[in-house]
Design a protein around this nucleic acid. Structure first.
Lengths: 213, 213
DNA sequence: GTATTCATCCCAGAAAACAGGGATTTATGA
DNA sequence: TCATAAATCCCTGTTTTCTGGGATGAATAC
């Protein structure tokens, strides 16, 4: 029995490459290829009777991207596996996909063997993620949890941003039309809250958070 | 008259994809494909009589990578054009390639049309770089020039690192077995040199330079 | 509806950073 | 070798930050 696959990628070259490595495997039957997620949604919606085993999709595509497509497929209750391939390993993308029960994730520069292994693994009912991807996901989770404990208010963010932009307390007070005592309090609270020692620590935090560059 | 091409990439899938889009074009004759730069060097060395028009190569390959390969080809005086494709847009890689007279650079997620356009352009004797790549190159040049003007000594780097790690002047002095006056001087010089206002500016510089994280 | 957080303001003393001077010895490059 | 840069140290003020208190109204959450 052959597995039915759908592939979505707006890059002709990648598509051709993928088709060529799947061609050598007789187990796979390519039902449909698409240049964006919308076509895949439509195809799946129309062919309600057909058994679709796996959708392989790129992340970046016009209109409906891979993230949205995965989400949509996983809501259909039709037990369609998803394998997402991407150029880049963004923690945000990986996180979003895993939260939406994606079955596998590969970087586009993976070797032929890894592609085939991933597809086999997923069709066998298991998840497939490389060690690197797992690490990124866990690292991200870990950081997000740490961040959750420390939550800055709007004003605090404003103040720490200006501190990191090299303004003095008095200057910040003038800018925000507040008393310099107020800013001093904010600075004090920030140092305590963020568990740092001084302005350098505040600045580093602000940069890490992207409040300044 | 057909153009003679060589392609080097250790990713079967990419290779297949590239071959498939070149297949539709009758102008190109693929002389040779390789999984790493060493094979290409050998091929070119042996076939001294053969006209080789273009080598398309990946950056990351085992043993001899695309950067080394481009350098080598450009030293041969055989007027072989080079088109480098890469997964990532690293300023360092782009800079190195352009300094070594590469004829074009593409990101691997380029569309079929861009690949063909790039190859045509290069074979026509012109360079091919996307706007994005040009921007990265120029931005990098610009930053490198700015950096050249500001050069920190070993000691200054040590001091600014510790400052950014939230140590006070006295603590740094103790750590480095120096007088606190010395550290004060360094801090003062750093503020002047780097044209910042205070500790926050020093910290930001240290982070940008990767002295601390 | 009350407990908590947010946003605001105030004070005082100590510690540290900042600004603006110099000076000496040791490398080092032209 | 002679000038320049690097590394080190010193001083005096002034400004800013840091520490450790405290207070109040308003909004928000439980």
């Amino acid at each position: 029995m052959k597995y039915n696959l759908i592939i979505a990628d707006d890059h002709k070259m990648f598509l051709d490459g993928l088709l060529s490595i799947l061609d050598t495997e007789s187990d796979y039957n390519i039902l449909f290829t698409a240049k964006h997620g919308g076509h895949v949604k439509k195809y799946i919606s129309i062919n309600t009777e057909e058994q679709i085993d796996l959708v392989i999709t790129d992340v970046t595509m016009p209109e409906v991207d891979g993230i949205a497509l995965n989400k949509w497929i996983k809501k259909t209750d039709r037990n369609i596996k998803t394998l997402v391939v991407s150029m880049h390993n963004s923690a945000k993308i990986i996180d979003d996909l895993i939260e939406n029960n994606v079955d596998g994730y590969l970087q586009k520069n993976a070797q032929k063997e890894e592609f085939l292994r991933a597809i086999e693994t997923i069709l066998g009912g298991e998840k497939y993620f490389s060690k690197e991807i797992k690490d990124i996901y866990l690292q991200n989770k870990f950081e997000k949890n740490k961040e959750k404990e420390i939550k800055l208010t709007k004003r605090e963010v404003e103040v720490i941003s200006l501190i990191a932009e090299e303004f003095t307390t008095q200057e910040i007070a003038d800018k925000l039309f507040l008393s310099k005592h107020t800013i001093e309090s904010y600075r004090k609270n920030l140092i305590t809250k963020l568990n740092v020692r001084n302005l350098a620590g505040l600045t580093k935090y602000a940069i890490k958070k992207g409040y300044v560059s």
